[in-house]
Amino acid sequence: MITKDAEKVAPVTPAPVAEVPPRRPRRQHRAWDEVPRWQIYLPLSVYLVFTLVPFYWILLFALRRPGSTSLVPWPLTFEHFEKVWNERSFGTYFQNSVLVGVVTLLMTTLVALAGGYALARFDFRIKRGFMLALLCSQFVPGALLLVPLFQIFAELRMINSLGSVILAETVFQLPLSIILISTFIKNVPYALEEAAWVDGCDRFTAFRVVVLPLLRPGLIAVGSFAFVHSWNHFLFALMFLSNQEKQTIPVGLNTLLSADSVDLGALAAGGIIAAVPVVIVFAFIQKWLITGFSAGAVKG
Protein backbone atom coordinates (compact mmCIF):
# COMPACT_ATOMS: atom_id res chain seq x y z
CA MET A 1 0.00 0.00 0.00
CA ILE A 2 2.56 2.46 1.14
CA THR A 3 4.96 1.74 -1.66
CA LYS A 4 2.15 1.98 -4.22
CA ASP A 5 1.09 5.39 -2.96
CA ALA A 6 4.64 6.61 -2.99
CA GLU A 7 4.97 5.51 -6.60
CA LYS A 8 1.79 7.39 -7.53
CA VAL A 9 2.83 10.60 -5.86
CA ALA A 10 6.42 10.65 -6.94
CA PRO A 11 5.96 11.89 -10.55
CA VAL A 12 3.68 14.75 -9.48
CA THR A 13 5.91 16.33 -6.85
CA PRO A 14 9.54 15.69 -7.62
CA ALA A 15 11.66 15.07 -4.56
CA PRO A 16 13.71 18.08 -3.47
CA VAL A 17 16.83 15.91 -3.64
CA ALA A 18 16.48 15.85 -7.43
CA GLU A 19 17.23 19.60 -7.66
CA VAL A 20 20.77 20.48 -8.75
CA PRO A 21 22.58 21.92 -5.77
CA PRO A 22 24.27 25.32 -6.33
CA ARG A 23 27.82 24.60 -7.35
CA ARG A 24 29.25 27.95 -6.39
CA PRO A 25 28.50 30.52 -3.71
CA ARG A 26 25.80 32.97 -4.77
CA ARG A 27 28.11 35.98 -5.16
CA GLN A 28 30.06 34.33 -7.97
CA HIS A 29 26.99 32.93 -9.61
CA ARG A 30 25.78 36.43 -10.43
CA ALA A 31 25.24 37.02 -14.14
CA TRP A 32 27.11 39.82 -15.93
CA ASP A 33 24.15 42.16 -16.00
CA GLU A 34 23.34 41.85 -12.32
CA VAL A 35 25.29 44.92 -11.30
CA PRO A 36 24.24 46.52 -8.01
CA ARG A 37 21.49 48.99 -8.87
CA TRP A 38 23.15 51.95 -7.19
CA GLN A 39 26.19 51.52 -9.42
CA ILE A 40 23.88 52.21 -12.37
CA TYR A 41 21.50 54.82 -11.06
CA LEU A 42 23.94 56.98 -9.13
CA PRO A 43 26.41 57.80 -11.94
CA LEU A 44 23.56 57.94 -14.46
CA SER A 45 21.65 60.49 -12.39
CA VAL A 46 24.76 62.62 -11.90
CA TYR A 47 25.38 62.61 -15.63
CA LEU A 48 21.73 63.29 -16.42
CA VAL A 49 21.84 66.40 -14.23
CA PHE A 50 24.81 67.60 -16.29
CA THR A 51 22.96 66.81 -19.54
CA LEU A 52 19.54 68.14 -18.62
CA VAL A 53 20.28 71.32 -16.64
CA PRO A 54 21.47 73.13 -19.82
CA PHE A 55 18.27 72.08 -21.63
CA TYR A 56 16.18 73.25 -18.69
CA TRP A 57 18.11 76.50 -18.59
CA ILE A 58 17.31 77.43 -22.19
CA LEU A 59 13.63 76.52 -21.71
CA LEU A 60 13.56 78.62 -18.55
CA PHE A 61 14.98 81.68 -20.28
CA ALA A 62 12.70 81.27 -23.29
CA LEU A 63 9.51 80.90 -21.29
CA ARG A 64 9.84 83.23 -18.30
CA ARG A 65 9.11 86.94 -18.32
CA PRO A 66 11.94 89.31 -19.21
CA GLY A 67 13.72 90.47 -16.07
CA SER A 68 12.43 87.55 -14.03
CA THR A 69 14.96 85.61 -11.97
CA SER A 70 12.61 82.82 -10.95
CA LEU A 71 13.94 79.30 -11.45
CA VAL A 72 10.49 78.19 -12.58
CA PRO A 73 9.16 79.54 -15.89
CA TRP A 74 5.86 80.66 -14.40
CA PRO A 75 3.82 82.58 -15.46
CA LEU A 76 4.56 81.32 -18.95
CA THR A 77 5.14 83.85 -21.69
CA PHE A 78 5.66 83.41 -25.40
CA GLU A 79 6.69 86.99 -26.06
CA HIS A 80 10.33 86.01 -26.65
CA PHE A 81 9.22 83.65 -29.39
CA GLU A 82 7.02 86.28 -31.04
CA LYS A 83 9.81 88.82 -30.87
CA VAL A 84 12.44 86.51 -32.34
CA TRP A 85 10.14 85.16 -35.03
CA ASN A 86 8.91 88.57 -36.22
CA GLU A 87 11.39 91.29 -35.24
CA ARG A 88 14.56 89.21 -35.50
CA SER A 89 13.47 87.57 -38.80
CA PHE A 90 13.63 84.02 -37.47
CA GLY A 91 10.53 83.33 -39.56
CA THR A 92 12.52 84.07 -42.71
CA TYR A 93 15.61 82.23 -41.42
CA PHE A 94 13.44 79.22 -40.68
CA GLN A 95 12.12 79.06 -44.26
CA ASN A 96 15.64 79.39 -45.64
CA SER A 97 16.98 76.69 -43.34
CA VAL A 98 14.18 74.32 -44.29
CA LEU A 99 14.86 74.92 -47.99
CA VAL A 100 18.60 74.36 -47.57
CA GLY A 101 18.03 71.26 -45.45
CA VAL A 102 15.49 69.60 -47.73
CA VAL A 103 17.36 70.26 -50.99
CA THR A 104 20.66 69.14 -49.42
CA LEU A 105 18.95 65.97 -48.23
CA LEU A 106 17.56 65.20 -51.70
CA MET A 107 20.76 65.97 -53.59
CA THR A 108 23.00 64.11 -51.16
CA THR A 109 20.81 61.02 -51.18
CA LEU A 110 20.45 60.91 -54.99
CA VAL A 111 24.11 61.49 -55.80
CA ALA A 112 25.24 59.13 -53.04
CA LEU A 113 22.84 56.42 -54.24
CA ALA A 114 24.35 56.51 -57.71
CA GLY A 115 27.93 56.53 -56.42
CA GLY A 116 27.24 53.98 -53.72
CA TYR A 117 25.64 51.59 -56.22
CA ALA A 118 28.67 51.84 -58.52
CA LEU A 119 31.01 51.05 -55.63
CA ALA A 120 28.91 48.18 -54.34
CA ARG A 121 28.10 46.39 -57.60
CA PHE A 122 30.90 47.04 -60.09
CA ASP A 123 34.62 46.52 -60.38
CA PHE A 124 36.05 49.35 -62.38
CA ARG A 125 39.47 50.76 -63.00
CA ILE A 126 39.41 53.85 -60.79
CA LYS A 127 37.37 52.23 -58.01
CA ARG A 128 40.25 52.05 -55.54
CA GLY A 129 41.29 55.61 -56.29
CA PHE A 130 37.71 56.81 -55.87
CA MET A 131 37.42 55.03 -52.53
CA LEU A 132 40.68 56.59 -51.38
CA ALA A 133 39.48 60.05 -52.47
CA LEU A 134 36.28 59.53 -50.48
CA LEU A 135 38.12 58.47 -47.35
CA CYS A 136 40.62 61.32 -47.58
CA SER A 137 38.08 64.03 -48.31
CA GLN A 138 36.35 63.19 -45.05
CA PHE A 139 39.33 64.86 -43.44
CA VAL A 140 39.26 67.98 -45.58
CA PRO A 141 37.68 70.62 -43.41
CA GLY A 142 35.28 72.97 -45.11
CA ALA A 143 36.34 75.63 -42.62
CA LEU A 144 39.83 75.73 -44.12
CA LEU A 145 38.54 76.09 -47.68
CA LEU A 146 36.36 79.12 -47.12
CA VAL A 147 38.43 81.48 -49.25
CA PRO A 148 38.70 79.38 -52.42
CA LEU A 149 35.08 78.30 -52.05
CA PHE A 150 34.04 81.92 -51.75
CA GLN A 151 35.97 82.72 -54.93
CA ILE A 152 34.35 79.84 -56.81
CA PHE A 153 30.87 80.92 -55.82
CA ALA A 154 31.69 84.52 -56.65
CA GLU A 155 32.82 83.32 -60.10
CA LEU A 156 29.55 81.36 -60.48
CA ARG A 157 27.60 84.45 -59.31
CA MET A 158 26.11 82.39 -56.50
CA ILE A 159 27.13 84.53 -53.53
CA ASN A 160 24.01 85.53 -51.62
CA SER A 161 22.02 82.72 -53.11
CA LEU A 162 20.99 79.69 -51.07
CA GLY A 163 22.32 77.54 -53.93
CA SER A 164 25.90 78.14 -52.80
CA VAL A 165 25.18 76.88 -49.29
CA ILE A 166 23.22 73.89 -50.62
CA LEU A 167 26.08 72.92 -52.95
CA ALA A 168 28.73 73.29 -50.27
CA GLU A 169 26.76 71.34 -47.67
CA THR A 170 25.99 68.57 -50.17
CA VAL A 171 29.62 68.24 -51.26
CA PHE A 172 30.96 67.88 -47.74
CA GLN A 173 28.20 65.44 -46.86
CA LEU A 174 28.84 63.22 -49.89
CA PRO A 175 31.96 61.20 -48.99
CA LEU A 176 30.50 59.65 -45.85
CA SER A 177 27.06 59.20 -47.45
CA ILE A 178 28.50 57.33 -50.42
CA ILE A 179 30.55 55.04 -48.20
CA LEU A 180 27.52 54.33 -46.00
CA ILE A 181 25.12 53.70 -48.87
CA SER A 182 27.56 51.39 -50.66
CA THR A 183 27.82 49.35 -47.45
CA PHE A 184 24.03 49.17 -47.23
CA ILE A 185 23.77 48.08 -50.89
CA LYS A 186 26.43 45.39 -50.35
CA ASN A 187 24.21 43.96 -47.64
CA VAL A 188 21.45 43.35 -50.20
CA PRO A 189 22.19 40.03 -51.98
CA TYR A 190 23.10 40.54 -55.63
CA ALA A 191 21.09 37.40 -56.45
CA LEU A 192 17.87 39.34 -55.76
CA GLU A 193 18.71 41.77 -58.56
CA GLU A 194 19.77 38.94 -60.88
CA ALA A 195 16.46 37.25 -60.29
CA ALA A 196 14.70 40.43 -61.37
CA TRP A 197 16.79 40.58 -64.56
CA VAL A 198 15.75 37.02 -65.37
CA ASP A 199 12.18 38.17 -65.03
CA GLY A 200 12.88 40.82 -67.65
CA CYS A 201 13.62 43.93 -65.63
CA ASP A 202 16.37 46.23 -66.77
CA ARG A 203 19.02 47.22 -64.25
CA PHE A 204 17.30 50.42 -63.18
CA THR A 205 13.88 48.83 -62.70
CA ALA A 206 15.44 45.93 -60.81
CA PHE A 207 17.19 48.41 -58.54
CA ARG A 208 14.06 50.47 -57.99
CA VAL A 209 11.74 47.55 -57.35
CA VAL A 210 14.03 45.14 -55.51
CA VAL A 211 16.90 47.01 -53.86
CA LEU A 212 15.45 50.41 -53.05
CA PRO A 213 12.73 49.20 -50.66
CA LEU A 214 15.35 47.21 -48.73
CA LEU A 215 17.55 50.30 -48.43
CA ARG A 216 14.89 52.29 -46.63
CA PRO A 217 16.43 52.24 -43.13
CA GLY A 218 19.83 53.17 -44.49
CA LEU A 219 18.47 55.94 -46.70
CA ILE A 220 16.46 57.37 -43.84
CA ALA A 221 19.61 57.45 -41.70
CA VAL A 222 21.75 59.03 -44.43
CA GLY A 223 19.05 61.51 -45.42
CA SER A 224 18.34 62.62 -41.89
CA PHE A 225 22.04 63.09 -41.18
CA ALA A 226 22.33 65.24 -44.28
CA PHE A 227 19.33 67.29 -43.18
CA VAL A 228 20.46 67.71 -39.59
CA HIS A 229 24.02 68.58 -40.56
CA SER A 230 23.00 71.23 -43.04
CA TRP A 231 20.45 72.52 -40.56
CA ASN A 232 23.07 72.83 -37.82
CA HIS A 233 26.07 73.97 -39.82
CA PHE A 234 26.70 77.67 -39.95
CA LEU A 235 30.07 78.59 -41.40
CA PHE A 236 29.11 78.34 -45.09
CA ALA A 237 25.91 80.31 -44.60
CA LEU A 238 27.81 82.92 -42.59
CA MET A 239 30.37 83.35 -45.36
CA PHE A 240 28.31 83.05 -48.53
CA LEU A 241 25.12 84.83 -47.51
CA SER A 242 25.60 88.45 -46.56
CA ASN A 243 22.05 89.47 -47.37
CA GLN A 244 20.02 89.23 -44.19
CA GLU A 245 16.93 87.94 -45.99
CA LYS A 246 18.89 84.93 -47.21
CA GLN A 247 20.42 83.86 -43.92
CA THR A 248 19.74 80.67 -42.03
CA ILE A 249 18.86 79.88 -38.42
CA PRO A 250 22.40 79.25 -37.12
CA VAL A 251 23.56 82.58 -38.58
CA GLY A 252 20.61 84.27 -36.91
CA LEU A 253 21.58 82.67 -33.60
CA ASN A 254 25.14 83.85 -34.06
CA THR A 255 23.88 87.38 -34.69
CA LEU A 256 21.96 87.26 -31.40
CA LEU A 257 25.03 85.83 -29.64
CA SER A 258 27.47 88.41 -30.92
CA ALA A 259 25.31 91.44 -30.13
CA ASP A 260 26.91 93.91 -27.71
CA SER A 261 24.29 93.29 -25.07
CA VAL A 262 22.85 89.87 -25.60
CA ASP A 263 19.06 89.64 -25.33
CA LEU A 264 19.01 86.39 -23.36
CA GLY A 265 15.29 85.75 -23.74
CA ALA A 266 15.44 86.16 -27.48
CA LEU A 267 18.57 84.01 -27.66
CA ALA A 268 16.87 81.22 -25.72
CA ALA A 269 13.72 81.37 -27.85
CA GLY A 270 15.81 81.40 -31.04
CA GLY A 271 17.77 78.39 -29.78
CA ILE A 272 14.58 76.44 -29.18
CA ILE A 273 13.32 77.29 -32.67
CA ALA A 274 16.65 75.97 -33.96
CA ALA A 275 16.29 72.74 -32.00
CA VAL A 276 12.67 71.87 -32.78
CA PRO A 277 13.12 70.41 -36.30
CA VAL A 278 16.08 68.31 -35.15
CA VAL A 279 14.04 66.93 -32.28
CA ILE A 280 11.15 66.15 -34.63
CA VAL A 281 13.43 64.42 -37.15
CA PHE A 282 14.96 62.23 -34.45
CA ALA A 283 11.62 61.40 -32.89
CA PHE A 284 10.28 60.23 -36.26
CA ILE A 285 13.27 58.22 -37.39
CA GLN A 286 14.25 56.66 -34.11
CA LYS A 287 13.16 53.16 -35.04
CA TRP A 288 15.13 53.24 -38.27
CA LEU A 289 18.08 54.93 -36.72
CA ILE A 290 19.72 52.01 -34.94
CA THR A 291 20.92 50.62 -38.28
CA GLY A 292 22.64 53.74 -39.37
CA PHE A 293 23.32 55.32 -36.04
CA SER A 294 26.74 53.95 -35.22
CA ALA A 295 28.01 54.44 -38.75
CA GLY A 296 26.59 57.90 -39.20
CA ALA A 297 27.55 59.17 -35.78
CA VAL A 298 31.15 59.00 -36.97
CA LYS A 299 30.71 62.32 -38.66
CA GLY A 300 29.90 63.97 -35.35
Partner: peptide, 28 residues
Protein backbone atom coordinates in the same frame (compact mmCIF):
# COMPACT_ATOMS: atom_id res chain seq x y z
CA UNK B 1 23.10 41.48 -67.09
CA UNK B 2 20.37 43.39 -68.86
CA UNK B 3 21.07 44.99 -72.20
CA UNK B 4 21.57 48.50 -70.97
CA UNK B 5 24.37 47.73 -68.50
CA UNK B 6 27.48 48.73 -70.34
CA UNK B 7 31.04 48.91 -69.14
CA UNK B 8 30.63 52.66 -68.87
CA UNK B 9 27.77 52.46 -66.36
CA UNK B 10 29.86 52.63 -63.16
CA UNK B 11 31.66 55.67 -64.51
CA UNK B 12 28.37 57.33 -65.35
CA UNK B 13 27.10 56.63 -61.86
CA UNK B 14 30.06 58.17 -60.07
CA UNK B 15 30.22 61.19 -62.39
CA UNK B 16 27.96 63.52 -60.36
CA UNK B 17 29.77 62.75 -57.11
CA UNK B 18 33.19 62.95 -58.75
CA UNK B 19 32.43 66.27 -60.46
CA UNK B 20 31.10 67.84 -57.28
CA UNK B 21 34.09 66.68 -55.27
CA UNK B 22 36.58 67.75 -57.94
CA UNK B 23 35.05 71.19 -58.24
CA UNK B 24 34.38 71.96 -54.59
CA UNK B 25 36.99 69.95 -52.69
CA UNK B 26 39.94 69.08 -54.94
CA UNK B 27 40.14 72.38 -56.81
CA UNK B 28 39.94 74.51 -53.62
Amino acid sequence: PPRRSRASLPYLLITPAALLMLGFIAYP
